[in-house]
């Protein structure tokens, strides 16, 4: 009682706290042509980003459905982001534009349910832009850390 901790003990406690710190789980729904290529390049360039992201590769973000997004949250994702080609360079012409509209609609649904629309975001990341991918992961990680874990967990 009231005993002072030894230095190694303090170090262990600090380490445990760090592990216990909220590490968000973010699902990234990204297209094979642009954002996935950028993510791959981020890896081969050894760029550092938070280990919070789980990637699901799509042939095109035009295939991302509102239901996929909702199911990810229902399964406990803290955040979801959709990453497509830059506007004007979608390999299927307008898949990323469709995804943009669906993300906007799903954001409204999430807000209406009380989960918060900010847990979902759309990014446009060209194949040659690994830094933008890193930025997206970092931005979503910080945002979700502020918001706290998915309240359904």
């Amino acid at each position: 009682m009231g005993q002072q901790m030894t230095q190694p003990e303090t170090r262990v406690i600090k380490g445990v706290n760090k592990i216990m710190e909220f590490q968000p789980k973010i699902e990234a729904m990204i297209c094979t042509y642009c954002t996935y290529t950028a993510a791959d390049m981020a890896g081969s360039q050894r760029l550092q980003y938070p280990p919070t992201v789980r990637i699901v590769k799509y042939p095109c973000t035009g295939r991302v459905s509102i239901l996929h997004i909702l199911k990810a949250f229902e399964a406990g994702a803290d955040a979801v982001f959709v990453g497509g080609c830059e506007i004007g360079s979608c390999h299927f012409v307008e898949g990323n534009l469709r995804a943009t509209e669906r993300v906007a609609y799903a954001k409204k649904l999430l807000a209406e349910t009380g989960l918060g629309g900010d847990r979902l975001e759309m990014f446009y990341i060209g194949a040659s832009d690994p830094h933008k991918f890193v930025e997206a992961v970092t931005q979503m990680t910080e945002r979700v850390k502020r918001m706290g874990p998915n309240p359904l967990k």
């Binding site: 229902e74 209406e112 349910t113």
Partner: peptide, 14 residues
């Protein structure tokens, strides 16, 4: 129906 069911389940679980 699938979308509404998912939303309702989430809303109620919350």
């Amino acid at each position: 129906v699938m979308i509404l069911a998912t939303i309702i389940r989430m809303g109620r679980k919350k």
